[in-house]
Design a protein around this nucleic acid. Sequence first.
DNA 1: ACTACCATACTTGTATGGTAGTATGGTAGT
DNA 2: ACTACCATACTACCATACAAGTATGGTAGT
Lengths: 230, 230
Amino acid sequence: MEYTIGTQALSTRDIVYRSLKNQILLLELPPGTGISEKEISLKFSVSRTPVREAFVRLAQEGLLAVYPQRGTVVSLIDSELVEEARFMREHLERAVIRESCSAFQARNLIDLKANLDKQKLCIEDQDYKEMFMLDEEFHHVIFMGCNKKNTWEVIQQIKVHLNRSRMLKLTADHNWEHLYRQHYGLYEAIEQHNIQQGDQIMQEHMALTIADQEMLMEKYPQYYKQRSAD
Amino acid sequence: MEYTIGTQALSTRDIVYRSLKNQILLLELPPGTGISEKEISLKFSVSRTPVREAFVRLAQEGLLAVYPQRGTVVSLIDSELVEEARFMREHLERAVIRESCSAFQARNLIDLKANLDKQKLCIEDQDYKEMFMLDEEFHHVIFMGCNKKNTWEVIQQIKVHLNRSRMLKLTADHNWEHLYRQHYGLYEAIEQHNIQQGDQIMQEHMALTIADQEMLMEKYPQYYKQRSAD
DNA sequence: ACTACCATACTTGTATGGTAGTATGGTAGT
DNA sequence: ACTACCATACTACCATACAAGTATGGTAGT
């Protein structure tokens, strides 16, 4: 009874799901774009069944809006949802950093330091793409270090709704130096069990991710859901 | 261009999805139960297609575990996930009550008071089923009152993983009187903008929902995922 | 008695055809 | 010119058929 689950090949459904999700998050499929099962099935040279099942998953995540017998569109960005996603992320990340400052696995602390060193290199090399990934990984390691794997997964789900508006903002204007100093401060707080410092820095750190929603809504009104009667 | 979205009839897929989800959460389909698409499609007298799509959704929510070409089982309860669900819920509910204590919609404050009055009646009548629903609704109103509709939705998702172990505990041992006093305290805190009181009470309130996981794991080992090598 | 093998009956995954509801563009009538 | 109507071409939804992998039990061979 040997269960070898982790290594199964990707199904057609998963391939379609991942590809569409990527295209949506990268705005290659802009909000409001109409797509049909048939169109996608032709593009991937597969039948409509796995496409439909990918649609079901994407609809559940709020990335597609399916109107029976009428069509399917890439969902518009819901500014209210974006704001709440920011809210949820802030409070969960702060709760996790506080926990990390009181108890953290030694192994992950080493990873954290190694990550920081790589960040420093990236800034010198101005390798912002790699820096972006290290940023993600830094937060991930923090979650792993205080046994919050599932919480990390939930955050990833929530962040989906932040990603598209962040993509609109063109991430180029990040102040990577500032980001690094904050990361270092978080590392310090964990190492020295300074809960107050950790919480404080994380709060400031989260504030950085606030995109100027109203500005974006004016600039790209066709991408945003207009709150009419509610 | 009249969009009448809210009133569409339930699709076969949704009917199957809701029914299965209910049965799983009520433990009528206990963790570990094997179910097949064909079996369900026969039971509902529908084809496999909508059943499969319901399976996809339930699998994404972590309620089903699908093993390609081998079978599908109702997922075992993951005690680690349960603990993190409790963690996430606590910190989100506390963040929301703090926000509610600083700004709350007048209309929802009225609803909150009305809900409290109904709770009092239920306790007198010992109508615990209705009391259970009012408890849910009470928290829901709080979220609505500080514009956190989507956060409520996320909590509902998270709570799925708490529900089954709470169901095992047999909810009969709730101290409804205590619950009511806490709810009243929360209402007071919102009305009087007492952030500290709100946060304090909510923290205690959340502690109530902690089921004794280890006890449950010993009593129902077949329902729990055994953490082997990890 | 025990083991290796294989037929069979499952499982989920994928493809395809048909159905019902909806948007659209053209046409006939005013 | 404008409106009401209808044929047509879509859409997502559901049913069915086929494909491919897996568990199981029986059987033949040792």
